[in-house]
């Protein structure tokens, strides 16, 4: 068992690592390379300064938000603390521009009503097999799912589900190889994201989202043809969220 366990471990680690879609390396700080390989200190901003500047900006934004939205400030759904971005699609300008629109922030009530469903799918195998492009644009990533969820929440969705599972601010959505894990449950593609809410507002928000616009362009491109489907539905049922809500660092309702 000892040897076998170690062999399995080695095989699985290599399998997990080998299957990863490695994102492009982040841009490195620009520097004057004429003087040799030591980066010029002028172009290097110490992380402490970056952190300090970030804190100042966040504080100002927070103050403004608190002042403007004070009358209906409620916990808003957070798409998660970290969202890795695929540079080939539009960058997300502001992850939480519409705090306070959510009426049922903790998802403890089931919801039924009209809404819309977006289905995201990887490009057909034929295209993936023959492409010369970065295969990442042919696959659905967690940030694509998050972008749809975000647009739905911005449109005032009263409930959002992914693969029929209710998702809330505390939901954990991560890519794991070719599956996406939502609150611990792995799902294969295609990914169905549904929202209960005002259909016109939902369609407008999804239509107007810059990230999703790029996604749809890529879906329409025969060389990419990553899957996109959007439909209105007369009745969508979102079950109550059944996971834990008690996060130390999560939003709370008093």
């Amino acid at each position: 068992m000892g040897i076998e366990l170690e062999e399995t471990l080695s095989r699985e680690l290599h399998e997990v690592a080998g299957r990863l879609a490695v994102p492009p390396m982040p841009a490195l700080p620009a520097h004057d390379s004429s003087g040799g390989r030591r980066p010029s200190s002028r172009t290097w901003v110490p992380p402490v300064l970056v952190a300090a500047a970030t804190i100042v900006v966040l504080a100002v934004v927070g103050l403004l938000a608190a002042r403007e939205g004070g009358h209906d400030l409620q916990p808003a759904p957070s798409p998660g603390p970290t969202v890795s971005q695929t540079p080939s699609r539009a960058a997300d300008p502001d992850p939480q521009p519409h705090r306070g629109k959510i009426q049922d922030p903790d998802g403890s009530m089931p919801r039924t009503g009209p809404g819309v469903t977006v289905t995201l799918a990887d490009a057909p195998e034929k295209v993936i097999g023959s492409t010369e492009l970065d295969p990442n644009v042919l696959l659905v990533h967690q940030q694509d799912i998050r972008a749809v969820m975000k647009a739905m929440w911005e449109a005032g969705a009263t409930a959002v589900t992914v693969q029929g599972q209710r998702v809330v601010s505390a939901s954990d959505i991560t890519c794991e190889g070719d599956t996406v894990i939502i609150d611990g449950v792995p799902y294969p593609q295609p990914f169905r994201i549904s929202a209960v809410g005002d259909q016109d507002a939902l369609l407008a928000a999804i239509d107007g989202d810059p990230y999703l616009t790029v996604y749809r362009q890529q879906a329409a491109d025969p060389a990419i043809s990553v899957g996109w489907d959007l439909r209105s539905e007369p009745s969508i049922t979102a079950p109550a969220y059944d996971g834990v809500l008690d996060l130390d660092a999560g939003p709370r309702r008093d």
């Binding site: 366990l5 399995t8 471990l9 699985e12 399998e15 997990v16 998660g80 603390p81 970290t82 505390a170 954990d172 991560t174 794991e176 190889g177 070719d178 599956t179 894990i181 609150d183 611990g184 449950v185 792995p186 799902y187 294969p188 059944d242 996971g243 834990v244 996060l247 130390d248 660092a249 999560g250």
Partner: peptide, 25 residues
């Protein structure tokens, strides 16, 4: 922080994907 871990406290319902079944460790 509970976010972004691979082993959340909720029990995993049975019947994961083929990938999950294959990777035991």
């Amino acid at each position: 922080l509970e976010l972004l871990t691979d082993a959340p406290p909720e029990p995993r319902p049975g019947g994961g994907s083929a990938l999950e079944d294959r990777l035991v460790l």
